[in-house]
Design a binder for these strands. Structure first.
Lengths: 243, 243
DNA sequence: AAAAATCATTTGTCAGACATTTAAAAGTCT
DNA sequence: AGACTTTTAAATGTCTGACAAATGATTTTT
């Protein structure tokens, strides 16, 4: 692991890169302890402050964790699905909000991916996941529910559907698509009539999942996508004329 | 933006969190300049070193960029799809390698997601993307190609397929699934016969995409998934008996 | 043997200094 | 006046040295 003091890049970035490469290549394995900051400083011929900045960069990506004390230090962290989920959600959310991604584009991606999960979920979902879907449908029918709560329940419903595929890689990939849409969905005002329509589609999808009918779940999701896009188009059209 | 000096979390992590929240909530907008490190240090009542560690955390996630000089400072960064891609690929790769995700699980996720793209790609792919697919197929037929080069070409083929959907959100989500499988694929030795089979399937998929026949592309992908899993199973079985 | 005190190691934080980069301001020449 | 050069000020990047706080290991005491 070497760094170039004459490079244009910051030393701390180079150090982070060198250690990251060592982790990716397998030179450093999970739970292995890195040299102490003082040792790293000597190895890289930089100050401890610079080493620390590099380590913080890695910590921000959950690649290492640090512990204080006698036997403490920086350890290679096992990147958990949990950690990856939340990173994925943050990134996806910012990506959508900062790049003026249209509602249609985000929606298309999300439902395309969800349809990919549907057949697997229909075949494998646990009773618990089905129960969650039913419970969220019930919640969505409650009067007096705020639009935000309705959206949150919608996300919970879809996450249960995705998790039903029992493929953690799929769940991880989908987490971003589903959750990142929430801020966009929150811009929509759902009338009682809208909610009833969505609720019926959710029920249809849950029925298909319960029956193990993947194809029906897919068509249900397609109908839901259409409905969602129509709703959004209405909202945006109304807003455009109002102003 | 406030931090709690008595919290268990590091001050630098709290500072990063506070600024990150401000970015996500929209309090800080793209290209806006943060206060200088000295000012932030005073605002948060910490030293400049601590502020800097916090800022490096954000830089690691591409949330800010820094510039030196008179009009320099830290600026809120527009998270580009490019940046998001590479983060996604790093995270996915580590997630697979560190969590003993089985080949089958990763493979299932990847092909499920790719099938979600196929109909869109068949409808919208540009001539250029189709040309890339054809070119990669041609490359894969060259004799003397190393296994690594074959895999790299495979990835290029599939990326063209995915990008053909012309949905940047989909491309972003898929980048991780497709690229992260490469290390796993590299463990496989492809015989001439294996390559011919894969090549034929690639051609079949490209034909379907060219003809705008989304359904055919989907079945082609399913066949390719089956083939890939069979190959991998063979390799792992052979390895198990050898040792 | 158990509990308490001490110790050594390591990260977390701080203060102050200097180097480097950069754009703007001031100065100089034609 | 305009073009070029020099100076200056502001900001990040890096270094040094120090102390605080946490924590496991060791030693001492009871």
């Amino acid at each position: 692991m070497k760094i170039d003091p004459n490079s244009t890049a910051d030393l701390s970035a180079q150090i982070a890169g060198a250690i990251r490469d060592a982790i990716i290549s397998g030179d450093l394995i999970v739970d292995e302890r890195l040299p102490s900051e003082a040792e790293l400083a000597e190895q890289f011929q930089v100050s401890r402050a610079t080493v620390r900045e590099g380590l913080k960069r890695l910590a921000a990506q959950s690649l290492i964790r640090t512990q204080r004390g006698a036997t403490g230090g920086a350890f290679v962290n096992r990147l958990s699905f949990e950690d990856a989920y939340s990173q994925q959600i943050t990134t996806s959310t910012l990506l959508l909000s900062m790049n003026a991604v249209s509602f249609d584009t985000a929606c298309e991606a999300r439902y395309a991916l969800e349809r990919a999960c549907a057949p697997l979920s229909a075949a494998r979902r646990s009773a618990d996941q089905l129960a969650t879907m039913r419970a969220e449908i019930f919640r969505q029918g409650q009067p007096g529910l705020t639009d935000e709560a309705f959206c949150a329940s919608d996300v919970a419903f879809h996450r249960a559907l995705v998790d039903g595929a029992h493929n953690p890689v799929l769940s991880y990939q989908l987490a971003g698509s589903v959750e990142a849409m929430q801020p966009l969905m929150n811009m929509i005002t759902f009338t009682a009539r809208d909610r009833a329509t969505i609720l019926a589609l959710h029920a249809r999808i849950a029925d298909a999942i319960e029956a193990g009918a993947g194809e029906d779940a897919v068509t249900g999701l397609t109908a839901l996508e259409e409905e969602t896009r129509k709703l959004a188009a209405d909202v945006f059209a109304r807003r455009a004329t109002k102003r």
